[in-house]
Design a protein around this nucleic acid. Structure first.
Lengths: 170, 170
DNA sequence: TAATTCCCGACTGAATTACTTGGTATCTTA
DNA sequence: TAAGATACCAAGTAATTCAGTCGGGAATTA
């Protein structure tokens, strides 16, 4: 279990998808602009997320990324693991037994801690974050702003039946 | 909140101190040898831990490091924070408001998550790991092995009144 | 057909990690 | 008092990871 800004990028991007799930796919260009992450870097992260089935891509105009599963079935731990791919085995594990046969005590303790941490993050789903009323409220307000912008700036109000959302709302 | 191998090194080293607390200070040379971490790198980590009051150094022969407080009053979060010093502010925070005044929604959500994670790790103390009976048992067995080694190999059986522990037990 | 988007791989600068070297200061024991 | 053990300190360095750039496809929609 590792936790870096890379993992944070992935988690916040996934939250973005989860929030706008009902409006069709979200483009990486949007996320890139909103969160100030470079587009190509996001592409690399999403390649990993896609490999784990956490997201699915939709090509062509009106395309973007969607959650691979309902947000209630995606845990924070999964997201972090997908991008951080941290096998990070403690050094002495297969290496040499630290003191004649039994596994190094402190490494055992670390695995214990690591397991507890994973359990904690695996119990937190995307849904548990975005389904809180105050979040829903802000998100709803942004949708109306976004659709107002979408109607103010001209063309292509719908694509494939779903309403297009202006890129600025995040 | 960040979590890397650096943090892991610090946590396992602190667990080491906690386990051998009753036997007087533990030298960095011991920890270095046991856990396969370079001595000077450990020194750098311990400099930070010392700055936070988590450990205290004892110079001279028979010296080493001791916990700065009882293990029941040292949390995992404190240890990780001490060495990772990760201020890691989300990019848009003071920068520019993402959408006209209110704080970016996903960054708000991240802070929420980050806070929960910190809370979790702050509730885990060193003591909660090492005071479990099976750990105490292994640790006790190692002590006897260590003291047996200490009596087999000759000199300086005691320093300052406390029994010297051979370096190999970890 | 043209625009839009995902998809892919190679490369690059910057930061961080983990380690090295070469010291100095303080303490304990003989 | 001398010698050795240990913490303490600072500068430098190779390897790794982070984050981004570039230059292209391939699929989809209007």
């Amino acid at each position: 279990m590792k936790l870096s800004t890379k993992g944070r990028y992935a988690v916040t991007a996934m939250m973005d998808l989860a929030i706008h799930d009902h409006q069709g796919p979200v483009t990486l260009a949007d996320i890139s602009q909103c969160q100030g992450i470079s587009l190509s870097y996001l592409e690399q992260l999403f390649a990993k997320l896609r490999k784990e089935g956490l997201v699915e891509g939709v090509r062509g105009p009106g395309g973007g990324y969607r959650l691979g599963r309902p947000s209630s079935q995606i845990s924070i731990a999964e997201i972090i693991n997908a991008v951080d791919e941290n096998i990070d085995v403690t050094r002495c594990l297969g290496n040499k037994d630290c003191h004649g046969g039994e596994k190094c005590l402190t490494h055992q303790l670390w695995e214990d801690l690591s397991g507890r941490l994973y359990g904690f993050l695996d119990n937190l789903t995307l849904a548990s974050f975005i389904n809180r009323p105050e979040i829903r409220e802000v998100s709803r307000r942004q949708d109306t702003i976004a659709s107002r912008i979408a109607t103010m700036f001209p063309p292509r109000p719908t694509i494939g039946g779903t309403t297009v959302v202006a890129g600025a709302a995040c």
